[in-house]
Amino acid sequence: MHPVSAVEALLADPGTLLWVDIPECSAEAATLLTDVLDCHPLAVRDCMQRNRVPRVRIYDHQQLLILHGPQRGPSGHVHYIELDQIVGDRYVVTVHGPLNPAVDPEIALRETDAVRRRLESGRLRPGTPYELSYAISSTLARTLESFIEEVTREVWLLEQRVTGGHMGNPEEFLEELFQARHGLLAVRTMGGLGAEVYGRVAALETRVAANDRPLVADIVDQLTRIRALADGEREYLQGVIEFYRARAETKMTIAAERLAVIAVVTLPITALSSIYGMNIIVNDHTHLPQLLLVLTVMAIMSTLLLTWAKRRGWW
Rank of each mutant, 00 (worst) to 15 (best):
I281N: 00
I241H: 09
A299R: 05
L177N: 07
L184V: 12
A210Y: 01
E120L: 13
N283W: 04
G192R: 12
L65H: 14
A27H: 06
I281M: 11
Q222F: 11
S138V: 11
L293W: 10
P126H: 03
T128P: 01
G15D: 15
T139A: 12
G69C: 11
M167V: 13
V44M: 11
D35I: 07
L229D: 11
D231Q: 10
W19P: 01
R200S: 04
T16W: 07
D104C: 04
D104I: 05
R142M: 11
N169E: 10
D60T: 11
D212A: 07
G232P: 05
E159H: 10
I58H: 05
D231W: 04
G97Q: 00
L17M: 08
M278H: 00
A230T: 01
L157K: 14
G76R: 01
A180W: 05
L288Q: 03
I219W: 02
R312W: 04
R312D: 01
R45L: 13
R213D: 09
Q160I: 11
R258C: 03
T139P: 00
E249C: 06
V155W: 05
D221G: 07
V155T: 07
L184I: 14
S274T: 12
N169V: 02
G183W: 08
I148Q: 05
V92N: 03
Q62P: 06
A256R: 04
R52Q: 13
E171S: 11
T152V: 13
G168F: 00
R312S: 05
T94S: 15
S138E: 14
P170V: 05
V265P: 13
L204I: 07
A246D: 14
S138M: 13
L295E: 05
H285I: 14
L267C: 04
H77S: 12
D21C: 13
V53G: 03
H285E: 12
V87L: 00
Y276N: 00
L11M: 13
L140D: 02
A6I: 10
G239W: 06
S133L: 14
P98G: 08
G232W: 07
A263I: 10
Q49N: 15
Q49T: 15
H96I: 03
I241R: 12
S146K: 10
L109T: 09
G97F: 00
P54C: 15
A248W: 06
L132G: 05
I226F: 03
Y134M: 01
T16V: 15
Q238S: 15
R50H: 15
L132E: 01
L272T: 02
R161H: 05
V162L: 02
D38E: 09
L132A: 01
G164T: 03
Y59P: 08
G239V: 07
L157V: 08
T152N: 10
R55H: 15
C25L: 00
I226G: 01
D60S: 11
A12C: 12
G277E: 03
